[in-house]
Design a protein around this nucleic acid. Structure first.
Lengths: 228, 228
DNA sequence: CGCTGCGTTGAGCTTCTTCAACGATCGTGG
DNA sequence: CCACGATCGTTGAAGAAGCTCAACGCAGCG
């Protein structure tokens, strides 16, 4: 059972005993998805939650006329669709593998039993949901109160804090996906990237963005500056 | 202790034993706020969460240039700022009383002890956070994928399902607040209300909105229709 | 080699915001 | 009780931001 090594790295499960890991390994299942393959659709019954073991997953909404808004992009170690476990309702969004992925499924009923018996698991889950909530708060703020250049700047700065190299960022998703994550369309994103580039705030080389003027980006992101 | 009657009506605490209610009543405090008075500010230390006992509270974000986005409006029986309890961090938004309100405060440390000892309380809290998450998902979808008329229509339909009278809705907040909740400004909201009214979809009488064409509103809300 | 997906660029247009002015309502103090 | 100011809602005109539609270059891949 190669899950074990992986499960022990998932922060949601930190603090579990050896037996609890065994128990967990018994109730979960694993499945592979090809690039572009859907994992679930909005409206599907949510009878459990998922865990990215390997690969990349996007959670997104679609409008009637086909426009997409990405809510999350999840990589290895991250759980998704946990909320459906506790509302007992249907998935409010779509999920799709952006790359070839291995995804673990944790069925609701057994997981709820585990939670009720493990205060630390409950606390971990509460913390996870709370972080998610905070992230959404941020997203709503960005969508409503910032213009696209500000959102883009904020996102680049965010990425630069996640990655090793502080000064240059490598996008793990395509520009079209990035546009959808920022609540805009590829054309607009492209224009703004070239604009930022022409103003010397950053440098674009395919999927690699180099930060040239961090202060300038921070002003943009805070809404103190306007793009001319 | 007049809390008791109230606490027993709060769904977050459903399933607690008599002793647990007593315990709860011991650790909480109550405070009154006047209309317009702040309860906490973004960035404040979040050392507990709140519960509306009476009145109306808004949770909101401000942009640099003063624009406001309302995240929630809470009335009696609803908890708010719970997430701060579990992330252990600062409040990510502002809270202010829209009316004269009585607000209960539940300090973090004692509440966490209660949760760890009460699986049902943990489950209630997980369910509450999950619902909140779902609501935000909806909000992001609206902001990103719908235009203002669609958001407004969706909101009116939502209100009509909450209230007794299915055909006429009474706004419990002013139109400026409603605009901020929908991610727009009073001018735009006003124009769209009159437009909807002229098209015979609804009727406006001060804070009372009468639904004249429910199907039309649903089409708008789903993005199937455009406003001419 | 051609196809397909992705990114870019241009032109025109729609939606929404900004700025300004004005009427109505409400609560307060004189 | 009236007058006043403040807040709130409405309307108009102009401008900005972002979207739509269309075309094209380029790279990867069968």
């Amino acid at each position: 059972m190669e899950f074990m090594d992986f499960l022990s790295t998932v922060s949601l499960f930190s603090g579990l005993t050896r037996e609890q890991y065994d128990e967990l390994a018994m109730i979960v299942t694993m499945q592979e998805y090809k690039r572009g393959q859907p994992i679930f659709a909005e409206g599907d019954e949510g009878n459990g939650f998922y865990l990215v073991m390997e690969g990349l997953v996007k959670i997104y909404k679609l409008s009637m006329d086909g426009k997409e808004q990405i809510l999350h992009i999840f990589g290895p170690g991250e759980p998704f669709a946990e909320a459906a476990v506790f509302t007992g309702s249907r998935f409010p969004a779509h999920a799709l593998a952006l790359e070839k992925s291995r995804i673990i499924f944790v069925p609701r009923a057994s997981f709820i039993k585990m939670i009720e018996a493990n205060p630390s698991l409950a606390m971990n889950m509460l913390a996870a949901l709370s972080m998610r909530l905070k992230k959404f708060t941020h997203m709503i703020e960005d969508l409503s109160l910032k213009e696209v250049p500000g959102r883009l700047a904020a996102h680049i700065l965010y990425l630069s804090e996640q990655q090793e190299d502080r000064e240059s960022v490598r996008l793990n998703i395509g520009k079209a996906q990035l546009a959808s994550l920022l609540g805009t369309i590829p054309e607009t994103l492209s224009r703004i990237l070239t604009k930022l580039s022409k103003q010397g705030l950053l440098n674009i080389d395919g999927p690699v963005i180099t930060i040239l003027d961090r202060d300038g980006l921070e002003e943009l992101s805070a809404g103190e500056t306007r793009l001319k």
